[in-house]
């Protein structure tokens, strides 16, 4: 296969997988850019922050941080907490990203919720270059976010939203992937662990503080249930 063909084939396989993210990031990125604009920041702020940080929910939190007094250590620690879930993505992708060579640093850099979801669950056709597929998904998602948030920053309050509810596209995507995972497994212990413990922690700790306790509870439960889960084929 010649070089151009290899790239084209991987792109053609990757692009359709990123369509829900195009819709979701198109909307959320635009919203973020507009929010930055009306908070008094020029468009180069969302542009460079999206290029450097590339973490949707954290960037929304960062708007308030940038409007407040200078507390660098606090900003650093808050980011670690908000983004701690990435640790789980990394652990989950250790094997899949193992043989990706020079593309690996970029794949890790771009490992946001949505890119993780696609790259973790995608069934890559055997005749498609695996590393290229993973890279195209990561790159496309990255571009959607950077372009949309910059556009929002430029247009600002000129943008009129009649698209209320479009952000649900991300919830719908996670639901489909969760369902696929459910259909693939036999024991469903991991799935139920994830949902139940998250809901319990949400009820106890509230929307702003439930992620870390939920992660700890999931980690503990999966560790204790290692035998039945491995036997049940969830981890196959």
């Amino acid at each position: 296969m010649d070089e151009r063909n290899r790239y084209l084939k991987a792109f053609r396989a990757a692009f359709p997988c990123t369509l829900p993210v195009l819709a979701g990031f198109g909307f959320l990125g635009l919203t973020y850019g507009v929010y930055m604009n009306v908070s008094g920041f020029g468009f180069w702020y969302p542009l460079f922050i999206s290029i450097l940080v590339f973490a949707g929910s954290m960037q929304f939190v960062a708007v308030d941080i940038l409007l407040a007094a200078f507390h660098p250590l606090q900003a650093f620690l808050l980011t670690l907490m908000v983004n701690a879930r990435h640790l789980f993505y990394g652990i989950s992708m250790l094997e899949k990203y193992r043989d990706t060579g020079k593309k690996k640093p970029f794949l890790i850099f771009g490992l946001c919720d949505e890119t993780f979801s696609i790259n973790c669950s995608a069934e890559i056709p055997p005749d498609v270059d695996k590393s290229l597929f993973l890279t195209f998904v990561t790159l496309l998602d990255y571009l959607y976010w950077v372009v949309a948030s910059t556009a929002g920053g430029m247009l600002g309050s000129l943008v009129h939203f009649s698209t209320e509810g479009l952000d649900f596209v991300m919830t719908a995507m996670f639901t489909v992937i969760f369902l696929e995972q459910w259909l693939k497994d036999r024991s469903h212990i991991s799935e139920m662990t994830g949902v139940l413990l998250s809901v319990i922690c949400l009820l106890i700790f509230g929307a702003d503080d439930f992620i870390l306790p939920a992660m700890a509870a999931i980690l503990l439960t999966l560790t204790l249930l290692r035998k039945p889960i491995e036997k049940g084929g969830d981890a196959a």
Partner: peptide, 11 residues
């Protein structure tokens, strides 16, 4: 790495 994704999508 194998057991986490299913739980993470629930999360």
């Amino acid at each position: 790495g194998k057991a986490l994704p299913a739980a993470v999508f629930g999360l």
